[in-house]
Computed example of a mutant assay.
Amino acid sequence: MKFTMERDAALRALTLATRTIERRNTVPILGHVLITAHKSRVSLAATNMDRWMTIEIGGASTLKTGTTTADAANMLAFVRATAAGTQIEVELTGEKLVMRAGRARATLLTLPAADFPAMKPEEVSTEILVAGDALARAIGQVAHAQSDEQTRYYLNGIFIHDRAGKLGLVATDGHRLGLAIVEPSKPLPENLPGIILPRQSVPELLRIATEAKQDELTLEISETRLQVAHTDVEFSTRLVDGTFPDYDRVIPRDNECRFNAGRVALAGAVARCATLASDGTSAVRMQIHKASAELSRKVEGEGEISDEIDIQVNGQPSFTGFNCSYMTAALDALACPDVDVEFTTGGPIVLRRSTDPKDGELQIVMAMRVV
């Protein structure tokens, strides 16, 4: 096997590959990439047995076909250390992989390509067609609410499902919830199974969707996996084997207190109250008056801080409390000029864009007891 590759293209491919590989593993082959020099292209494959990725190295030129494996971290370190624009020659000599860049040379030990774990084929049962930028936007809105609690593993990811004929994405950790909705490029299949995309795979799907921009992506769903491909990257991930809870039950209706506020103004007031947060609870009290919202925070032994913003109240004046970091993330996810906020004292706080329908996208922050 022998081929040449351009440094920047190789750097991108190896960086993507190493993101799939676990940093610590006890199986040496799982720290390697599978390198395949085809007649017309060169590709890398990486896996941690839960996620698989194949990347084509753009602009690589094959001189002799073949396949082998090499340590991904060592390859990446050598490529990263070379100058931009450098041509790198890679050649398999016996059981060693030789990389040359100018007068620099690295010789890496290899493992048999036959030892590299192959992804077991599964029949695709469902396909979803969606624009990349729409999917990226939705993932960005809900990713902050994912759980990392091991006992409720089914919350460690994003629930993707059919919501009234549109693609719904939901994440929650029990303290907050994000719901985003995507219009699919073609009608969703009947009896679309709800799937839970694992937390570890969310950044990669988000990256692929972001790079796709307005291109359409096909999400292929099989019994245990989700697969997606775009240009030079193919990505597959094992799904969470569990049942996502009925999140509709925690969305409160008919809240007593409702108001409209400028998102930036409200986020700014929350951020100022968060500056006094050394007790670890980050609890902020929000008192709703006839035409304003007063946010305040007290920390025993340190002092207190407060701020007030103008709002338009549509319901009963009331008060509530919330975790300021959760509220900040929810407001950031909405990314709009004005937000509608509603709650009943002691109940969850619901935030929506002012332009969104009541059954559309939302953020929920659970209430906290405050003094």
Rank of each mutant, 00 (worst) to 15 (best):
T68Q: 05
L239W: 05
A134G: 02
I196L: 09
L276E: 04
M53L: 12
G347I: 03
A81I: 01
F78V: 05
D232F: 11
V339N: 12
I311T: 10
I128P: 09
M368Y: 14
E342Y: 00
R100G: 09
M99Q: 14
T210P: 05
Y154D: 06
L108W: 05
T210Y: 11
K96V: 09
T344V: 04
E308W: 01
T231I: 12
G346E: 08
I349K: 00
I158G: 10
T67G: 02
P337R: 13
Q363G: 03
R352S: 12
V313G: 10
A9I: 12
T54W: 02
I128W: 00
R23M: 02
L331F: 04
V341W: 14
A70P: 03
C336I: 11
A131W: 01
V350Q: 08
P184I: 13
T93V: 15
A171M: 10
D215N: 14
T15R: 07
L44Q: 02
L111Q: 14
S325C: 02
T151F: 03
G347S: 03
M1D: 06
R24M: 03
R105E: 08
M49F: 07
L16M: 15
I195Q: 06
Q312L: 11
I305V: 15
L177S: 11
L334I: 10
A37Q: 08
P184L: 06
P348M: 06
A134T: 08
S282K: 15
N74T: 09
Y326V: 01
I158M: 12
P348I: 00
F244G: 09
R163W: 03
L109M: 10
T107F: 04
T36D: 04
M75V: 10
I57W: 13
A17L: 08
A104W: 10
I305Y: 03
K120L: 08
V299C: 14
V130H: 05
T20C: 15
A46P: 03
T345I: 01
M49Q: 12
R51G: 07
V299P: 05
T54S: 11
I181P: 02
A45I: 02
A114L: 13
S325L: 13
P348W: 01
E220H: 14
A136C: 10
